[in-house]
Design a protein around this nucleic acid. Structure first.
Lengths: 193, 193
DNA sequence: TAGGAAAGAGACAGACCTGTCTCATCACTT
DNA sequence: AAGTGATGAGACAGGTCTGTCTCTTTCCTA
């Protein structure tokens, strides 16, 4: 059903929609704005994405895949679990300092599509759980499963909160405190009370 | 300009709008739905709130005031700083378990109104900073200002992340991990490396 | 009981929304 | 060179959005 798109129009729409969704949100961004920015015909978009929600899901999945690829590259370098987690925090610091940083698109998707069964909600949820699982498997190399699970959840929460704080204009304080807290969390998980 | 509203219609609108915003989001909730739910005339709403954004700000401020009042009551009971922070986490656990829990309205407002200068963004930001300051002043009673500041930021991030995780259906794991991580954060702030 | 403020009811405007439809045009393959 | 599928351009439908306006009714107070 979806055209094979040899000329890459589909990706073009996804990229344009991403930039607009990021800046203005999902509901506030109309189809007309997207096709104007992508400079394509409306029907071209609707042939690739039968409904706006499908486009939103495609944007989220594309960004999630990109995110995973970037973290895959980082993980290859560092050694200890703490160092691997530190590279993830480094990645977030660079992201926070991007002039085009507008908060986490996945968190925004969860906010705008609150229904747990909605495809957009599920797509955003997958990304968050992916990051959590990634950190859990990093930690499991150096500690038992149970504390690794809890620490990974805590680190995910810390990162999500840091992203929110950075969005409020406190990127420096957020990343500094997050780094210290991450060390404390990992250390306390390693040595159970 | 705003009517004195002896009959409490204003608050009635705020309450109805809150329930709808919470469930469906700000942009997705139309004025017509609000006035239907509140069972008032459209002009009554527009006499109290000249624009929809004004209503949104009023809803946020009302909820923020309610939140502050509830935490004020809790703070009076507990003793140590760690115990006071624990009561804040307890409050959040009860919130997460509420059948009508739909995530944090302030975080959702930040997501939907990304412009830093927008009144809605600023109102939501105030609430987050209020919670951070509250925790900072709790911690300052037992440690110097600098570590208290960092720990308060970390605890805020942890709580925000826990709220997000609870919204994704992991309330139990979120609050359990948050409690452990909070202890580690406070302990490590108390004894600087 | 009279006056004035608040609220009700609903039509209305103008803009924007998503999604559909038609028909012409382009590009590539065979 | 012909055919096939993707694309372009834009009108169009039907709905929803915010916000305004007018007129009537209610309610509280003095």
């Amino acid at each position: 059903m979806t055209p094979s798109s040899p000329s890459g129009k589909r990706q073009h729409v996804v990229d344009a929609a991403y930039a607009l969704f990021k800046r203005d949100g999902f509901h506030a961004t109309g189809i007309d704005r997207i096709i104007a920015e992508a400079d394509i015909a409306k029907m071209t978009m609707y042939r690739h994405f039968p409904a706006k929600d499908d486009l939103i899901v495609a944007v989220l999945e594309h960004r999630a895949a990109r995110f995973e690829r970037q973290l895959d590259r980082l993980a290859a370098t560092a050694g200890t679990a703490a160092a691997k987690i530190a590279t993830i925090l480094d990645w977030h610091e660079r992201w926070f300092r991007d002039p085009d940083f507008h908060g986490c698109l996945f968190a925004h998707a969860l906010a705008e599509f609150g229904d747990t069964d909605h495809p957009v909600f599920k797509a955003a949820s997958r990304q968050k759980n992916g990051l959590r699982k990634r950190m859990r498997s990093i930690l499991e190399k150096e500690m038992p499963t149970e504390p690794a699970e809890g620490a990974a959840a805590a680190l995910l929460m810390l990162i999500e909160g840091a992203t929110l704080m950075a969005q409020m204009g406190e990127a420096t304080a957020a990343i500094d405190s997050a780094r210290k807290a991450a060390s404390a969390i990992i250390a306390s998980a390693r040595v159970p009370p």
